[in-house]
Nucleic acid binder design. Sequence first.
DNA 1: CGCAAAATCACCCGGAAGTGTGACGACAAA
DNA 2: TTTGTCGTCACACTTCCGGGTGATTTTGCG
Lengths: 148, 148
Amino acid sequence: MRRGLLYGAVGGALLVLLKLVEYQYLVRVYPAEVYGGVVAVIFMAVGIYAGIRLTRPKVVEVEVVKEVLVSAQPFALNAGKLKELGITQREHEILGLIAEGLSNREIGERLFVSENTVKTHSSRLFEKMSVNRRTQAVQKGKELGLIP
Amino acid sequence: MRRGLLYGAVGGALLVLLKLVEYQYLVRVYPAEVYGGVVAVIFMAVGIYAGIRLTRPKVVEVEVVKEVLVSAQPFALNAGKLKELGITQREHEILGLIAEGLSNREIGERLFVSENTVKTHSSRLFEKMSVNRRTQAVQKGKELGLIP
DNA sequence: CGCAAAATCACCCGGAAGTGTGACGACAAA
DNA sequence: TTTGTCGTCACACTTCCGGGTGATTTTGCG
């Protein structure tokens, strides 16, 4: 869009210049070489200016993001620890619900299984995590990056 | 450095062109206007090219430093919430120990009080926090900034 | 297919957790 | 002094949790 205008303006200026040139007194006074040289210099100047104008918006913004210390909630699950401890995904799921403060019964209701099943899962989970209370499991789970 | 070379080259090219122009057969065949126009167009093209060349290395690097939250464990205790809920410091202390996964008995041992006392404190604490399980108290306590 | 792991469920038991009530002493504010 | 809050403790009772055992079904993989 802007380029179109610029080109148009340049073209117009060129025509005007040629029109002015019709007054041949300049040509009569000086030889053709000088005339051509002057025109060349003028248009080169215009060309350089146009070139600068055309390329000026070529400003490259290099955005350097310096992360000083990220801890704005990027919880990255420690899948390695999970595998290392042999915790199944069901057990992991239950760990999360325990951390939310749900009772075994509530967890069972949410997962559509019996409370006994939840107990079995949590028992095995505690065994694998080497804890013997749900609160400890929560604490250790957070330390190990198993839960946010 | 490079600019000097470029200017020299451009000057040289200009001279060469003017020399070529000496062969006047071109001038004889076409009127002066056309001659001037051709020279103008050629030099404008050269000028535009030169302008682009000259300004190309003008890449402006804008370094935007974005700092992403630095919170590296600045646990600020929400004393207001504590007062608002009417939680005493003893109760708050016990909340902290509960969050560490201790049992009531262990808490009692650490504070040199009976398990029953711990139960009383935790009961009142739960009531004030509107929860009915220690795991919920821990979760809510972290949300409210009562514990780290 | 057949096996192993995972998930499901049940039952029992002991202990932990949570609720409710009552009580006592210390201490500060009214 | 009286009142109120806080911390302490006890006891009874209910509910929940955790450990142990055993069993069945589902599922994923070679």
